[in-house]
Design a protein around this nucleic acid. Structure first.
Length: 86
DNA sequence: CATTTGACGCCAA
DNA sequence: TTTGGCGCCAAAT
């Protein structure tokens, strides 16, 4: 079945290089629907994959947002990678 | 198939 | 500037 959105979101997030973070809005935009920022978060939330650095996706405000493994973990990961909102 | 949920985003007060 | 409410979408139940 072609879950274009879910599949694309995963692909996009998987492509995020180390030290780089994208906003949910940006990911949604690359996934094909900029209005689906919410859906993006929902997808990552229910479908966490070790290949997908979902911790590199943050809110447009610059806030980290949430994380399945704990927001604290996400914060540490980003800090460790030195990620910045380019 | 209809309803609920949810890691969001933007605007108004 | 901060808080609250509304709008948007896709997936899960």
């Amino acid at each position: 079945m072609k879950k274009a959105f879910k599949d694309k979101v995963m692909a996009v997030v998987r492509r995020i290089p180390n030290g780089r973070v994208l906003t949910y809005k940006e990911v949604a935009r690359r996934a094909g629907n900029i209005l689906a920022a919410r859906a993006v978060g929902n997808i990552l939330n229910k479908n966490y994959d070790p290949n997908i650095p979902c911790h590199r996706v943050v809110r447009s405000d610059g806030s980290l947002g949430g994380y399945n493994r704990g927001a604290q973990r996400k914060k540490e990961l980003l800090k460790k990678e030195g990620a910045v909102r380019a």
